[in-house]
């Protein structure tokens, strides 16, 4: 952005006077709002595009199958050596040292679960490795509001 015009009005060596400061403040805050509102609109737009694409996939599951088939065909043509076709058998990883059994997550992402565990540890002043979580279940927001 060319702000040379404003810069030219201000003498950089002299003291800034209140009128100039007021003018700059108005332009400055307007620019901050314009940039962040533009970002807000772009973020909203990108979000809507992704949401509608997910909704389309749910509405037309056959499209998803077609895309998957297409991807599989592409992958087949890309494979050049037979070694790459070897299937890797998943191996159950041993539990991490210090962990205590397994945690069941119901409608809860790993990130949310980690946050909840951290909050519980903080609130109870108990180190995380001394706590045992068996299951974390997300209660639907609507149900919570009804219970209230």
């Amino acid at each position: 952005m060319q702000l040379d015009l404003i810069a030219a009005i201000l003498n950089k060596e002299s003291k800034l006077d209140v009128v100039d400061a007021l003018l700059l403040a108005l332009i400055g805050i307007a620019i901050v709002f314009i940039v962040l509102i533009a970002l807000m609109l772009i973020v909203t737009l990108v979000g809507k595009i992704f949401d509608s694409s997910d909704a389309m996939k749910q509405k037309h599951p056959e499209w998803g199958d077609k895309i998957a088939n297409f991807k599989a065909k592409l992958a087949f043509w890309k494979k050049s050596t037979p070694e790459e076709e070897e299937e890797v058998t998943p191996v159950d990883a041993p539990l991490a040292k210090g962990s205590c059994g397994e945690l069941t997550l119901v409608n809860t992402s790993d990130r949310d679960a980690a946050m909840i565990m951290a909050i519980v540890a903080d609130e109870t002043n108990t180190p995380l490795n001394e706590l045992r979580f068996k299951s974390i279940k997300r209660v639907d927001d609507k149900n919570m509001e009804e219970e209230k």
Partner: peptide, 14 residues
């Protein structure tokens, strides 16, 4: 921006 105005009002700063 409010501080910018306040700083100008002190008359001490470029």
């Amino acid at each position: 921006y409010l501080v910018l105005i306040l700083a100008a009002a002190t008359g001490m700063y470029t």
